[in-house]
């Protein structure tokens, strides 16, 4: 059952894809063929976007002042738990607060790779941008302040703060909060003070932006092909008086035979 639940989306997409492909091959009418082609291409978009969707994720626009993520609070609570389980770092389960934060399970490899090296592996001021590293430090209880020095104001103020705020997590107000992380998110998102420092980035999961970018390209390529195809259809209609594939083919064959006789 779990197997089905994990894959039903692919199967639906395959059915849609094949529907489009079937129209392309089955239709004799050229415009209908192009419609089928469009459906086939759109279904491929579904496939890529499905790959990039993360459970409980939100659009890949870094949260600065709220707006996004507000209705995802509940989802995060669950995710966090799961993420922690996946991390399988025994010690993270000890403290509920850390537990919540560990939904960066997708960074698992990076975390593990970098734990030994501490927090500042990339550029010096990259710390705040690197949720996984900051998290790695915390999860091991090594030092909550390990991440602090990286949180320089300039960066927290710009888009980076979504992650940057991880370094804020161990601050007392959050640890003291008895609520589920959804409350923490809500606080941050609706932050009355409006200061960008109030980000709880660790709790925001983003969907993968790369498939989106690729599919934007694919959409545009699709419409370009479509306009060329339609222009051809218009010309074929003018030249043959029909846009039914079989009639055009019959006319072509007749023409070829006529030429063959002449030759």
């Amino acid at each position: 059952m779990e197997f089905v639940l994990e894959r039903y989306n692919y199967w639906i997409i395959i059915v849609l894809m094949m529907g489009g492909l079937y129209i392309v091959f089955e239709a004799e009418n050229m415009i209908k063929k192009l419609v089928g082609l469009g459906i086939f291409q759109t279904s491929v978009l579904f496939f890529y976007v499905t790959l990039g969707k993360t459970a409980g994720g939100t659009a890949p626009i870094l949260v600065e002042t709220g707006g996004h993520g507000d209705d995802h609070g509940d989802g995060h609570a669950a995710e966090a738990g799961h993420g922690a389980a996946a991390v399988a770092h025994g010690e993270t389960h000890a403290a509920p607060v850390l537990h919540e934060e560990s939904d960066v399970a997708h960074q698992l490899e990076t975390v593990e790779a970098e734990i030994s090296e501490g927090v500042t592996e990339l550029a010096p001021n990259n710390v705040d941008g690197h949720a996984s590293e900051a998290h790695g430090a915390q999860a091991h209880g090594a030092q909550a302040h390990g991440a602090e020095p990286g949180a320089d104001p300039g960066h927290v103020a710009n888009g980076a703060d979504a992650h940057g705020a991880v370094s804020d997590l161990p601050s007392p107000e959050f640890i003291a909060t008895p609520h589920a992380p959804s409350q923490a998110v809500a606080d941050a998102v609706y932050g009355q003070s409006g200061e960008p420092l109030h980000m709880v980035a660790g709790d925001i999961i983003y969907s993968n932006p790369l498939p989106h970018v690729l599919m934007l390209t694919a959409i545009v390529v699709g419409v370009a092909t479509l306009s060329v195809g339609l222009a051809l259809v218009v010309r074929i209609r003018e030249a043959y008086g029909t846009i039914e594939m079989d009639e055009v083919r019959a006319a072509d064959i007749a023409e070829g035979e006529a030429e063959g006789d002449a030759a």
Partner: peptide
């Protein structure tokens, strides 16, 4: 579907977010 530790979501794509 939606998995966070799939190659896609641990690969290049998510690096961009950071």
């Amino acid at each position: 579907f939606g998995s966070l530790d799939s190659p896609v979501n641990t690969g290049v794509g998510m690096q961009y977010m950071e």
